[in-house]
Write a protein that binds this DNA or RNA. Structure first.
Ligand SMILES: [Mn+2]
Ligand SMILES: [Mn+2]
Ligand SMILES: [Mn+2]
Ligand SMILES: [Mn+2]
Lengths: 240, 240
DNA sequence: TAGTATAGTTAGGCTTGCCTAACTTTGTCA
DNA sequence: TGACAAAGTTAGGCAAGCCTAACTATACTA
């Protein structure tokens, strides 16, 4: 029985999952219990059940008990399986708190595909196996967490810096910038373009008046005084 | 600088993430590049940027380049960090294919909280550390995966069976069921209720006519012939 | 068996996030 | 400069999921 490619939303998978779990706990599944477990209103459940029926996953009849079709049970079981594997890993390998693990598993179960889940299951098996050979990996990890000082100094994959393109108005006196772009096309911008303010040119800020207006800059040997408003439209990349 | 509790949707986090990454790769960030990377239309990007601006995360001005605020950069960096940690774990510990890991990480990054991510990072550190002590855990795991026959026999956390409450019409001759509920309140249902068909009673199906109609049952010593339509409204739990 | 409590449905509305088509702004280059 | 291309915005619409309020069907109990 190969599971059909389902393409269900996270929401619908959760409905399937709780119906599946409720069915395992009591004789019949009631709409209100689904609502309570998922934290949604009764009418939301009605809506979801209609969708599940339309997809051939639930045997829905108004006012009737809720049951899953064969296909629905298969899909639900798959979700529940992912949930269990994930929670097991979070709790018994990583040592995450049970409640947090429960919630995390019920989110992640909808976004991790079979390849990742299969590997994770193998890994759990590996860890379990290792503990039988005298080397309890999960335990070893817990020790590792305890013994180490709080500061994690793992080379937390350096994250590339954000580019240094800013408005010319933000450049400090003495700094230089290469013009990347001039925003807008107004008469004023044409005026400064005529004075050599074009992309590619390097400008140096010389003086900035108290309130940031005006700004004295030097480019191509010329001096130029710019309004803050104008400068803010000149995007430069800081150089040197 | 403590990161503010953001509560961003997965979608908005992805926008932040790609803006952050693009900013690291080139001088300026263009709307169309965001659209291309996320696989959405230009207008969707415009909409998202307006939302990010309203949340104080992006410096959005129509037709201007896209930049992030301090808060936006912080939020984006957090998402990117989760992404990197998850991908690293999937690829270098679990041995998942790089492309699949990339996609899985970019989904899971939105649903796994700081507790899980912190533990995962510690675990990666633990594995890395172990490899320096001559016991390469990740490598060991790969061997384990290879050497083992395809069949995984890990006690895949037994999943509870679905409850056996069915309509009486589905019960085979010779089987018995305890009545759980009778659906509907029509005159017909009242008739059979008068004959002892009430919740709690155990019925045994004796004979079923060729097309499933009628159905002969025995209860409390009486014989009763039911229409399939009637029987389908009598929910029973299989017994014995 | 009626009257009330409970369960479930319907109607209508909201938000998020996406789309296409048409339009405007900006960039480019002869 | 001015025409054309590229980038970005606006308008309008749609689907998924959720909600509340009002209504209806079923269950319980005296
Ligand atoms: Mn879930
Ligand atoms: Mn779950
Ligand atoms: Mn993502
Ligand atoms: Mn990502």
């Amino acid at each position: 029985m190969v599971a059909a490619k389902s393409n269900l939303s996270a929401s619908l998978e959760d409905y399937l999952e709780v119906i599946f779990n409720l069915a395992g706990e009591s004789n019949v599944v009631r709409s209100k219990d689904i609502a309570k477990l998922l934290g949604v209103s009764k009418s939301s459940v009605t809506g979801a059940l209609r969708v599940l029926k339309s997809k051939g996953l639930a045997n829905y009849k108004p006012y009737d008990y809720v049951t899953l079709t064969e296909a629905g049970q298969a899909a639900a079981a798959e979700v529940a399986r992912k949930h269990n594997i994930l929670k097991y890993f979070f709790v018994n390998v990583l040592g995450v708190d049970s409640d947090i693990a429960q919630k995390a598993a019920c989110k992640a179960e909808h976004v991790l595909g079979p390849e990742v889940i299969a590997r994770l299951l193998s890994f759990i098996e590996f860890v379990t196996r290792s503990s039988k050979n005298g080397y309890d990996l999960a335990d070893e990890f817990k020790q590792f967490c305890k013994n180490r000082s709080q500061s994690s100094n793992f080379p937390d994959k350096e994250i590339s810096e954000v580019s240094d393109v800013v408005g010319l108005n933000e450049v400090k006196p003495g700094q230089k910038g290469r013009i990347v772009k001039i925003i807008g096309r107004s008469g004023v911008n044409k005026r400064i373009a005529d004075m050599g303010v074009v992309p590619g040119t390097t400008v140096e800020v010389q003086r900035v008046a108290p309130l940031g207006d005006p700004i004295d800059v030097k480019l191509k040997g010329y001096h130029l005084s710019l309004r803050k408003e104008e400068a803010s439209k000149i995007m430069v990349e800081l150089v040197q």
